[in-house]
Design a protein around this nucleic acid. Structure first.
Lengths: 129, 129
DNA sequence: ATAAGGGTTCCAGTCACTGGAAGGTCAACC
DNA sequence: GGTTGACCTTCCAGTGACTGGAACCCTTAT
């Protein structure tokens, strides 16, 4: 399997797959012509990575998860720890973004949005009263 | 006012203030010794920037907002457009993160987190059934 | 023989800082 | 006057996770 077929099979851009090899996440074989050759195992690894990335795990987390995945003697606690930490970070981000949304939503609502210069958004940014 | 005092007044790191000058967001004066010298106006600008950044606006958005702030003939619609776009982006991000949180939350909940290898988190990452 | 459409590497850019090195300046104290 | 320590300066490199592009090689079909 060439890289573009691997890309199609995993829904990852070829560039990203090359990058993952570059940082040592995967190690596809090489044909005589120097082309990368992807086996089913590689495709599985890439799919795993794509799913983990889609859940927002960092690449380093993905590296750990992939290693655990391939370790038959793993403890599920190790996986859970990584996931729990990530979950907490996500929840914190949601809290941050929700606060922004609320503030910004109120400001947008009260701004006339016409051709006059008067603007509560700018007012709020220039003084926190 | 030297940079460290400006930093304290605005709650921005000195490094960030230098960076903002570097990319042309602010233009503090310079003393005979080459030190930056911040006037009240500069402090106001920096405070404005800090607030806008805290609301998640990109630096380029901040540049536009600052220009509008300093333009007495602005139209509030221009400000509102920027804010509305950003608000929409924030809302989209919250939706994304919430989906991640839900999925991940379920997985973490069903994972025993003990020393056995069986793990629904890895299972879910390796096959989407 | 050539042209299209793969593949390869490597370098630079993204965004918004942040850390660190190397060196100049200032205020205070002995 | 000399020295210490805290400040200031610039410049370069690194962060995360790619992404774009250049320059070049390989394969397949015409």
């Amino acid at each position: 399997m060439n890289i573009s077929q691997a890309a199609e099979a995993t829904n990852l851009p070829s560039k990203t797959i090359r990058y993952y090899e570059d940082i040592g996440l995967i190690s596809p074989d090489r044909g005589a012509n120097g082309y990368r050759s992807f086996s089913d195992t590689h495709i599985h690894q890439l799919t795993f990575l794509a799913r983990a990335r889609a859940l927002g795990f960092s690449v380093e987390d993905c590296r750990s998860l992939l290693a655990l995945w391939e370790d038959r003697d793993r403890a599920s606690a190790d996986v859970r720890n990584i996931a729990q930490k990530h979950l907490t970070a996500i929840e914190a981000k949601i809290v941050d973004l929700s606060a922004m949304r609320d503030t910004l939503g109120n400001l947008v609502k009260t701004c006339a949005g016409d051709d006059r210069p008067d603007c509560p958004i700018l007012k709020s940014l220039s003084s926190s009263d």
